[in-house]
Design a protein around this nucleic acid. Structure first.
Lengths: 120, 120
DNA sequence: TCAACCAGTATCTTTTTTGTAACCTTCCAC
DNA sequence: GTGGAAGGTTACAAAAAAGATACTGGTTGA
């Protein structure tokens, strides 16, 4: 019988993983940054240029303003998007994708293609 | 002032999105398949060959057996993995990645590289 | 003046997800 | 015959996420 993975027995005979994935293995870490509900979509909508808050909320048909605002703040904190006050009095705000955010577009596009090609 | 996105006014003067993303736009759909907690990691761990249930649970240091079993069933339902009884009496089960599951590895690998390259 | 827009907040409730712990059955070794 | 392994399941509690609704306060156009 072969164990494909790194499992060994300690000196008491109990099995143990040699290299357990303590939660933040790269895949999980990435998912936590970009995997939250709506985050991917938001970033995707910003890819062609700045978008205003309410426009964004309208486009993301199923998401409430609260959701959008919450996600945007999280994404701003990690530097994926940038909030920019375009105009005081009438207040106008635009959200931009940052260069770092751009680096995520590559695999978001993979994800998009994957979903589309497998009719999910 | 330019609206980068497809927003128009209806006959009552109210703004509306022309093509709102009702929740299942491809990115969101994909995220719901592969984006759940641990799902990516599980699939990743299966990429090199079949893994036994308890070994998997041990490897995913932070996940309980319940989580692992739950995720595995969800992933089996959509055809990402396959459960295989290797041996009755002593019962032995192995989880395999399916050809469909393989198609997701490309994206997962991009994600992994992204996380690692941006020290997240 | 009234209504709508801008960019959000605040509050509350509901739903979903996660975690903990115990338990089950069969088998083998001591 | 006790304890561990195997592969789970179940019940319960806690925590996190999401949704609904209302509201702010200033601005603009009819």
């Amino acid at each position: 019988m072969s164990d494909a993975v790194d499992i060994a027995k300690d000196r008491n005979g109990r099995k143990r993983a040699l290299a357990p994935c303590l939660s933040p293995c790269p895949i999980e870490r990435g998912m936590r940054i970009i995997g939250g509900k709506w985050k991917g979509s938001i970033l995707w909508h910003l890819k062609d240029g700045p978008v205003r808050f309410n426009d964004l909320a309208r486009q993301l048909g199923g998401a409430s303003k609260k959701m959008v605002s919450q996600r945007l703040r999280e994404m701003e904190e990690v530097g994926l998007v940038k909030r920019e006050v375009v105009n005081m009095r009438p207040i106008a705000v635009a959200y931009n994708i940052t260069p770092f955010g751009q680096t995520a577009l590559k695999f978001l596009n993979e994800l998009r293609a994957w979903s589309e090609n497998h009719n999910l």
